[in-house]
C-alpha cells in the first residue's frame, strides 16, 4: 500500500502545483451553478430537492472528468518521466491505482464544494437528505468511472488533447447509451435483447435510478465494476508499452 500512497500523494499534489486545481474547481462550480439555476430553472420548479442539480452531472462529467484524467499518463509519456516511474520499484497496478485515486479524490473535493447548493435547498424547504446523500455517493461513483475511462485513454497516447477528445468520445457512448437518440435509432431494427443490453450500459439509466432515491446495490456495483474494468485495461496498456 505504500506504493499506492506514494503515487497518490505525488499525483494529488501535482494538481495543486499549477493553476490547474484552481481553474478546474472554479469551472466545475460555475458550471454546476449555471446548469442548476439557469439552464435547469431550479427556482421555477417550486420543489426543494436536488434532482435538477444532479440530473446535469453526467453531462458535465462527460467533459470535466476527461479534463482531469487526460494528463495522468499522457504527460508522463510526453516528458519522459514515465521511464523513471516504471523503473522505480513500483508494481504497475499500484501506479495505476494511485494515479486514479488521486484524480478521484480531486473530483470528490470538487463535488464536496457544491455543498452550498444543498444548503440552499435546506434553507428553502426540507429535502430528503437520504436521497441527497445517495445521489452524492452515486455521483462520486459515476465520476470514478469517467475518470477510469479517461485514465485508460490517457495511457494510450502521448498527447493530452487526443487523450481528452478520445476520452470524451468513449464517455459519450456510455453516457448516451440509454438516451432517446440512441434508443430510437436502435429500436427500429435491432433485436430487443441488444437494445436492452445497450441501455443497461447507460450511465444515465443507472445514475437516475440512484438519484430517484432507489438505492440499488446493482447500480453501485455497475459503476464500480466498470471502473475496475477500465483500470485493468489501463494496466494492460501500460504493460504493453514495455514491449516497445
Amino acid at each position: 500500500m505504500n506504493a499506492v500512497s506514494a503515487v497518490f500523494r505525488r499525483e494529488f499534489a501535482a494538481y495543486f502545483a499549477t493553476p490547474i486545481a484552481f481553474v478546474f474547481l472554479v469551472i466545475f462550480l460555475v458550471a454546476m451553478g449555471v446548469f442548476t439555476f439557469y439552464v435547469g430553472h431550479y427556482f421555477d420548479m417550486g420543489v426543494a430537492d436536488l434532482t435538477v442539480f444532479f440530473s446535469y452531472h453526467p453531462w458535465l462529467y462527460l467533459f470535466l472528468m476527461p479534463a482531469l484524467a487526460m494528463r495522468l499518463w499522457a504527460e508522463e509519456k510526453r516528458s519522459g518521466s514515465i521511464e523513471l516511474l516504471l523503473t522505480l520499484p513500483l508494481p504497475v497496478w499500484a501506479t495505476v491505482l494511485g494515479k486514479f485515486l488521486a484524480a478521484w479524490a480531486f473530483a470528490g473535493l470538487a463535488l464536496f464544494l457544491t455543498f452550498p447548493v444543498w444548503l440552499t435547498t435546506l434553507y428553502l424547504g426540507a429535502p430528503d437528505n437520504g436521497v441527497v446523500l445517495a445521489s452524492y455517493i452515486g455521483s462520486l461513483l459515476m465520476a470514478g468511472t469517467y475518470l477510469a475511462i479517461g485514465a485508460a485513454v490517457s495511457a494510450a497516447t502521448t498527447n493530452q488533447v487526443i487523450a481528452f477528445v478520445a476520452a470524451v468520445a468513449v464517455c459519450f457512448l456510455f453516457t448516451a447509451a440509454g438516451a432517446p437518440i440512441v434508443m430510437e435509432s436502435l429500436s427500429g431494427w435491432a433485436p430487443a435483447p441488444l437494445v436492452e443490453a445497450v441501455a443497461s450500459f447507460s450511465f444515465l439509466t443507472h445514475f437516475s435510478a440512484i438519484t430517484e432515491g432507489v438505492i440499488d446495490l446493482r447500480d453501485a456495483i455497475f459503476f464500480l465494476s466498470l471502473t475496475s474494468l477500465f483500470l485493468f485495461a489501463n494496466m494492460l496498456i501500460v504493460e504493453s508499452g514495455k514491449g516497445g
Binding site: R10, A14, A17, G80, L84, L88, P89
Partner: peptide
C-alpha cells in the same frame, strides 16, 4: 529495481516539483 539506481537518458523528472 530495488537494488538499482537509474538515470534515464535526458534525466526526466517531474518539472512542477
Amino acid at each position: 529495481q530495488k537494488t538499482l539506481g537509474y538515470l534515464p537518458e535526458g534525466a526526466p523528472a517531474y518539472g512542477e516539483m
